[in-house]
């Protein structure tokens, strides 16, 4: 029976973890290009999801329209955050930039609470079919959609970074912002586009998680920020692959911990793993090289 539990938990964990992976991809893109933490990332997603929810509640918008509103809303709010917290700050003011993003976190959350004051609101459900049975294992159809969407977006992001001109520019800015500017890349524009892209990806993640729960709570902003951050750090904040690995790992770990130890210990295990990793193995799962690079930048004489 334990073997079956383990298998079922792992499966569930992978599904939930795929939404964490999306959040981590968004965080990684922003951190890579800006080298600063965007604490308002979760609230940006919340703003998109709340706009979609409002349209669903008051206008009865169909699910695809809700999806479009969520993505558009998150992108626009992302743009606002970029304008106010990132663009005006130079390299020397990273902390100020981060604290400014925290200030906007508070601002966006309060604005969202004015839009939908109730703690919990309904959200259109993704797929309302019975769970699939694979042998003894159960698999929810909407979870499958979530996993498929994650793989699709991760694939698209990888393709964008590896094969397109914008992707090349993004990678150049991540690697050497100054050199990128010298060879004629409009660094500010690339930063803005990356920001909007990451916010849109976050919007999709927020939509998927709200749709699988068929509801959305006021905690979604905080949830997205902390889960995305933890998943990104577990993956070593170096790459899209690391972000996916970190997200899936976090999902699986939480599923097992919840089953065997209960929900409170579940969160503790995730934070505990992060702490141990950072303290004793700061390269993360896949980001050893990225870390070397940031260290090298820091130690440049």
């Amino acid at each position: 029976m334990v073997a079956l539990d383990l298998a079922q938990n792992t499966l569930d964990g992978l599904m939930v973890g795929s939404s964490y992976a999306l959040l981590a991809i968004g965080f990684t893109l922003i951190f890579g290009v800006m080298r600063r933490l965007n604490l308002a990332y979760g609230p940006t997603i919340m703003a998109g999801v709340y706009l979609g929810t409002a349209a669903f509640i008051s206008l009865g918008a169909p699910i695809l329209v809700v999806l479009a509103i969520v993505i558009l809303g998150a992108s626009l709010v992302g743009l606002y955050v970029e304008r106010l917290c990132f663009r005006p700050f130079g390299e020397g003011a990273r902390t100020a930039s981060m604290v400014a993003s925290f200030a906007l976190w508070m601002q966006i959350e309060e604005a969202a609470m004015h839009l939908l004051p109730r703690h919990m609101n309904p959200f259109p459900a993704l797929v309302a079919s019975a769970p699939l049975e694979i042998g003894p294992l159960m698999l929810r159809a909407d979870h499958l959609v979530m996993l498929a969407a994650t793989l699709l977006i991760a694939g698209a992001a990888t393709y964008l970074l590896a094969r397109t001109k914008l992707g090349l520019a993004i990678r150049a800015v991540i690697d050497q912002p100054r050199a990128a500017a010298i060879v004629g890349i409009d660094v500010e524009r690339v930063m803005m586009l990356t920001f909007v892209l990451a916010s849109a990806i976050g919007g999709i993640a927020g939509f998927l998680i709200a749709a699988t729960d068929a509801q959305v709570t006021a905690m979604i902003g905080m949830w997205a920020t902390t889960k995305g951050l933890v998943a990104m750090m577990l993956g070593g904040l170096g790459s899209v692959k690391g972000a996916i690995a970190g997200g899936l790992l976090l999902g699986v770990l939480e599923a097992h911990a919840q089953w065997f130890l209960g929900p409170q210990v579940r969160d503790m295990v995730a934070w505990g793993l992060l702490f141990v990793l950072l303290a004793f193995w700061p390269g993360g799962l896949m980001g050893a090289k990225a870390l070397d690079r940031t260290m090298a930048v820091g130690r440049r004489v």
């Binding site: 106010l84 100020a96 930039s97 400014a100 200030a103 906007l104 966006i108 309060e110």
Partner: peptide, 15 residues
């Protein structure tokens, strides 16, 4: 509206 005011104020102040 405290946070809406304060959040924006802080961001501008930090700039």
């Amino acid at each position: 509206y405290r946070m809406i005011v304060f959040g924006g104020l802080v961001a501008v102040l930090l700039i």
